[in-house]
């Protein structure tokens, strides 16, 4: 379970970094990043996730919505193909899935692992991205900014190869997160309709659906 938690930690780390990376900031200036991140109070965005695996002839597409409210509230909601929701707020994390029209709380332990992860995400929300020793990050400037992160921990070998975050330089939004697990397995998440610092109903972080 520890390794699974570590993998999920990486997943949410890159999402946290990506969603909060301000456009136009000097890519290697983490102090500026921390200053800009401190101004973010809420985020909501749609996402489309494509899972590529050797076993699939075409990507498995998932869709959903992401919400964040400072300091540490997150709602990560998949609408299809498997309807599920992760809620995290005040150190309490729960995961739900839908079955036969009913909402069922996931009791397999994944929520606990994600609780540890999301507690760290709260730190990342403060812009403390360079404080995490689990990653070695590099930045490539171009039409967009691409941040590439490679796990520094040996126990990640064979599980996550790299994470690429593509950031728009024109507007304060992330475009894509790409998590490469190995040569044939990767997850690509495209964000759209991102809204920053608009009111988000607090009940979204407490209740399902």
């Amino acid at each position: 379970m520890r390794r699974y938690g570590a993998v999920i930690k990486i997943l949410f780390f890159c999402l946290g970094v990506g969603l909060l990376w301000p456009a136009g900031a000097p890519a290697d200036d983490f102090a500026a990043l921390r200053r800009d991140a401190a101004r973010i109070r809420t985020i909501s965005a749609d996402f489309v996730q494509q899972k590529h695996m050797k076993i699939l002839s075409r990507p498995l597409v998932s869709e959903g919505r992401f919400y964040f409210a400072a300091p540490d509230s997150i709602r990560w909601e998949y609408n299809k193909p498997l309807k599920s929701i992760v809620l995290s707020s005040g150190g309490n994390t729960r995961r739900y899935f839908f079955s036969g029209g009913k909402i069922i709380e996931d009791t397999a332990g994944g929520a606990q692992a994600m609780g540890l992860v999301l507690a760290e995400v709260a730190a990342w929300m403060k812009g403390e991205f360079d404080a995490n020793p689990s990653f070695a990050a590099s930045v490539k400037e171009g039409a967009d900014t691409v941040v590439t992160m490679k796990p520094a921990e040996k126990n990640m070998a064979g599980m996550i190869e790299k994470i690429e975050i593509t950031l728009s330089r024109k507007e304060p939004a992330i475009k894509t997160v790409r998590i490469v697990e190995n040569a044939s397995t990767e997850t690509r998440i495209n964000f759209s309709n991102m809204v920053i610092n608009q009111p988000v109903n607090p009940s979204l972080f407490q209740e399902v659906p």
């Binding site: 699974y4 993998v7 997943l11 899972k51 498995l60 498997l82 599920s84 996931d106 397999a108």
Partner: peptide, 29 residues
């Protein structure tokens, strides 16, 4: 224990070979 996963199964009846993958709702294999 109650949980939900996504499962992919590839079957080749001629060779009786099976490939499978399980992933979380978040897409983690």
């Amino acid at each position: 224990v109650k949980t939900a996963l996504i499962g992919v199964t590839l079957i080749d009846p001629a060779s009786r070979s099976i490939s499978c993958a399980l992933m979380s709702a978040e897409g983690m294999a």
